[in-house]
Design a protein around this nucleic acid. Structure first.
Length: 482
RNA sequence: CGGGGCGUAGCGCAGCCCGGCUAGCGCGUCUGCUUUGGGAGCAGAAGGUCGGAGGUUCAAAUCCUCUCGCCCCGACCA
């Protein structure tokens, strides 16, 4: 199945969907707003999972599994939480052929049911902290779905922790934000801006929400992960209390944090080009594809090529490679296929290479045929493994550099509201903000842009709000977002 | 829920405005031969309730009415 994909510049939304479907990452399900994650997409997700999971465990978290169904009354216990989630709940009213006494909500997120369980498990300060994560699917009745970015059902991890003090909870919230940032930058090669959400954008029920914000290939923003300081809001709603060392009952301080399959969408949009996906080597399901070029009527040549391939494979320990020996597909066809799928590195090897004891190494992130600076280089056949490993590191680093350069080139620091309105249409606008919700709302009305975050990293000094001119202490990132 | 677009072969589409022979085309699939260093060529073959229901007509993919669904742009959101 081969159809040319539409260039990004022509129709970004169409490009995005075409790439996902043609690269076999995902497909539409028969139910509106739901998607099927196909094996190739899921393999990428599994690598994301593995990287995050190992970081969670290294910081003392354990995995568990909580139920899919939540009693409706649970959702209603925290005022802001209900208000935020009620409109997008899927509710089960019947079971076993009978109407249920109390409707069950298909979890949109699990603070409530986990909070309920924590209230039973936590008695003493000695029980704290509780550090639990779960990998799960959740459902939100979204009005306008989009593959990976916003589907009605999506996959994610949600961490839920309980602490004795607010200081500890804050520390946890920021520790996770660091983990997310580290993951995004060093594994996904996506430069993200860690920061705080504004009041209007924060998680329903949180005291403070933190986020990592990324820029996509069309210069729009994407929230790629969130970490919430829930204060004592859920502890109070669910009665999560402990007896402290002075024999006093105290409410716990809780946090929650999540990264979803949206991260896959971020990877696609941060790195993809008109040829298809470009996957960062550290997460790519296949890091290296070997394409043997074997003339049909020369069995001895074919055998020699395949022997050389087998020999190379023996040296590739630690590399996720695949040999595409579909000899009935032409080399060009196979090249294009793997480029569409974003495999970071390709080895081309044919009889002509064998004569010179070399192979062709072609990198996905730099297309172009020839020359030492192009995407293709010749590499001595004895040294393939070393070159491959080095090249994978180089690609990983270059992808991050390229994405960072792109983001920086499209980040502006306007000094007047007029200039602000213009630049926010074509990238990130960094500007002073007084903190007033009215100014935030005005920006949204005038430009459709929202505050993506108030970055953790702030410049020295103070300035004047880009909207109202009042004294401002913080810089905010404004952008149009998904 | 508002605005736009679309449902015809596995996929992508033309045909519809202006009704008329057996509903076409490209890709893919199957068979055979020739091919393989950037999406191979030739020959042959299979594959269709034209989204659904009703209506108009001698005759409907095409016109009318109703209906279902999907995609895109907004409002809402990880």
């Amino acid at each position: 199945m081969f159809n040319k994909i539409v260039p990004r510049s022509e129709d970004y939304a169409k490009w995005y969907t075409q790439v996902i479907r043609q690269a076999e990452m995902a497909d539409y399900a028969p139910v509106r707003g739901c998607m099927v994650v196909r094996p190739y997409g899921f393999a990428l997700w599994e690598n994301v999972k593995e990287q995050l999971d190992s970081r969670f465990k290294a910081t003392g978290h354990q995995n568990a599994a909580f139920p899919l169904f939540i009693p409706m009354s649970f959702i209603e216990k925290e005022a802001e939480h209900v208000e935020g989630f009620k409109p997008e709940l899927a509710v089960v009213t019947h079971g076993g052929g009978k109407k249920l006494d109390e409707p069950l909500v298909v979890r949109p997120t699990s603070e409530t049911i986990i909070g309920y369980m924590y209230s039973q498990w936590i008695q003493s300060y000695r029980d704290l902290p509780v550090l639990i994560n779960q990998w799960a699917n959740v459902v939100r009745w979204e009005l306008r779905p989009r593959l990976f970015l916003r589907t009605m059902e999506f996959f994610w991890q949600e961490g839920h922790t309980a602490h004795a003090t607010h200081a500890e909870a804050k520390e946890e919230t920021l520790r996770i934000l660091d983990i997310y940032t580290d993951f995004a930058v060093n594994e996904a090669a996506i430069p993200v801006i860690p920061g705080r959400k504004s009041e209007s954008e924060k998680f329903p029920g949180a005291l403070t929400s933190y986020t990592i914000e990324a820029m996509m290939g069309d210069k729009r923003g994407l929230q790629a992960g969130t970490s919430h300081d829930l204060g004592q809001n859920f502890a109070k709603a669910f009665d999560i209390q402990y007896l402290d060392a002075n024999q006093k009952q105290q409410h716990c301080w809780t946090t929650s944090w999540g990264v979803s399959t949206r991260m896959i969408g971020a990877i696609i949009m941060a790195h993809g080009d008109d040829q298809g996906l470009v996957l960062p080597p550290r997460l790519a399901p296949t890091q290296l594809v070997i394409v043997p070029i074997t003339p049909k009527n020369r069995e001895d040549d074919k055998q020699a090529v395949m022997d050389a391939v087998a020999k190379i494979c023996e040296t590739l320990d630690g590399v996720r490679y695949h040999v595409d020996d579909r000899h009935d597909y032409s080399p060009g066809w196979r090249f294009n296929e793997w480029e569409l799928k974003g495999v970071p590195l390709r080895i081309e090897i044919g009889p002509r290479d064998l004569q010179k004891d070399q192979v062709v190494l072609a990198r996905r992130d730099i297309l172009g045929r020839d020359g030492p600076r192009g995407g293709k280089t010749f590499v001595a056949i004895d040294n393939v493994a070393n070159e491959v490993k080095q090249m994978l590191d180089t690609i990983q680093a270059d992808m991050l550099k390229r994405a960072t350069a792109f983001r920086d080139a499209n980040t502006f620091e306007p000094t007047s509201y007029e200039a602000f309105q213009e630049v926010v249409e074509e990238g990130f606008a960094r500007a002073w903000w007084c903190g007033d919700e009215a100014c935030e709302a005005k920006v949204k009305e005038d430009t459709q842009a929202t505050i993506r975050c108030v970055p953790i990293a702030q410049p020295d000094g103070a300035g004047h709000c880009i909207v109202c001119g009042a004294a401002a202490e913080e810089i905010a990132i404004f952008a149009r977002a998904y």
